[in-house]
Amino acid sequence: MRMQDVVLRFDADAVLKGVTMDLDVQGCTVIMGPNGAGKSLLLKLMHGLMAPTSGQIMWGAKAPSDVMSRQALVLQKPVLLRRSVAANIDFVLKARGKDIGLRDGLLEHVGLLHKATQPARLLSGGEAQRLSLARALATEPEVLFLDEPTASLDPASVLAIERIVSDARSRGVRIVWVTHDIGQARRMADDVVFLQAGQVAEHSAAAAFFSEPRSQAARDYLDGRIVF
């Protein structure tokens, strides 16, 4: 994926101020940065849910909207249908013309098979997030966007989600993961994009980013000093 001089404005305010970056075909990119830096918006732009005010985003030779159906997005707050856990998966499988028989396997994979008949909206935060992830995987995406899927989850749920995503990655799914969890970024990232105030302050390989971040902003962030 190639992003060039992407600017996003709301009224007069530029929220993204000229973002340029390239992502490899494979691996897991972690996007970090303080609240309000523009991480969620960046994901939505890459996925094609929003269009930039100016600049260009291309997946190979294609526009995001042309490849959206081969990508999946897990929102920070899962949006679940007012149906059972199983019906939430069935809905996506049917809508995408896939085999309903895949459902139990998917639920098993995220450890929710025993909750299949429960109303989805009564799941706990961690369970809801796992269902949201299972639904994303049901579309068999080539690219998986995760927007802080483990914020406010207990350590076991965090590890469960990391395991599921690692699994997908080893099957060749491209991962783009927004997180504030530095430990998680260390565990998951191949490369790290550090976003600050709508600009890429740094984009480095994970090892380099954590051992010797090049930007002052990233250094401050990793040390727990607030960056606004």
Binding site: K44, L49, M68, Q71, A72, L75, V79, L81, R96, T139
Partner: peptide
């Protein structure tokens, strides 16, 4: 509530209305 998730799932208008 659903719009963004539905768009991400690339649902047709008919599928959206039905859901």
């Amino acid at each position: 509530e659903y719009a963004e998730q539905f768009r991400s799932l690339c649902l047709t208008r008919l599928q959206t209305v039905q859901a």
